[in-house]
Amino acid sequence: MSHPVEVSELAKTYFEQGRGQVPAVRGISFWCQESEIFGLLGANGAGKTSTLRMLSTVLTPSSGTASVMGHDLVKEPAAVRRSLGFFSASTALYPRLTPRETLDFFARINGYPADRVKARVEELIERIGLQSYANTRVDQLSSGMKQKVSIARTVAHDPPVLIFDEPTVGLDVLNALEFHDVLREFRTQGKSIILSTHIMSEVEKLCDRIAIVHQGKILACDTLAGLRESSGEHYLEDIFVRCVKAGHP
């Protein structure tokens, strides 16, 4: 049976002036099923963002294959993008639009049925508690509110797959905790969620399965309990360090 997200031997090599070919991702494979939060845990520069950018079709893979809801990344990029919501630090909101206009635009452009867009937008505005700011320009909102609108923007077209790349970077504790609740809610709704982060506690609390990524490779991929058992360590931090030092669990 196929999973909503399937990644097989995905690789990405960049060309850099003076350095030549630089491999960023070296053959990563994983899958993510429904109602699951799959964590990609790794240090900065490990290849997490490149992997997720390939999954969202922003980057073209150098080799390997992947599919989202059965759609091939390279052959059906539009269908892939329609099936997922992508959130990262580099996906900001349009500052001159209001939250209502933002949600309306992203729902429509991602193919949400036109006759249901209005209701969907109002539902999301109510869900994130932005009723009184729905018609205020985004550049006049606080960072916390912007974060909420960004999350709503990601799910505006109700995609089955959600990708979050370092979503809590720059958030205060309360906003980060609120975001964790939102992620859990999405999981309950049956979404397949890929969460990339370098914050160990976040992964421990949220992820059903965890892949430890280092230098463009997955060193280990299992549930937290499975990783504890195979590594003999209790804390994720120790598990991570052991994996990275050994190059394998």
Binding site: F86, S88, S90, F106, N110, G111, H157
Partner: peptide, 14 residues
């Protein structure tokens, strides 16, 4: 500069 370019590239529009 506003980091909205990637937001646009991840929409279903080609």
């Amino acid at each position: 500069e506003r980091s909205t370019w990637e937001t646009l590239l991840t929409t279903a529009a080609s």
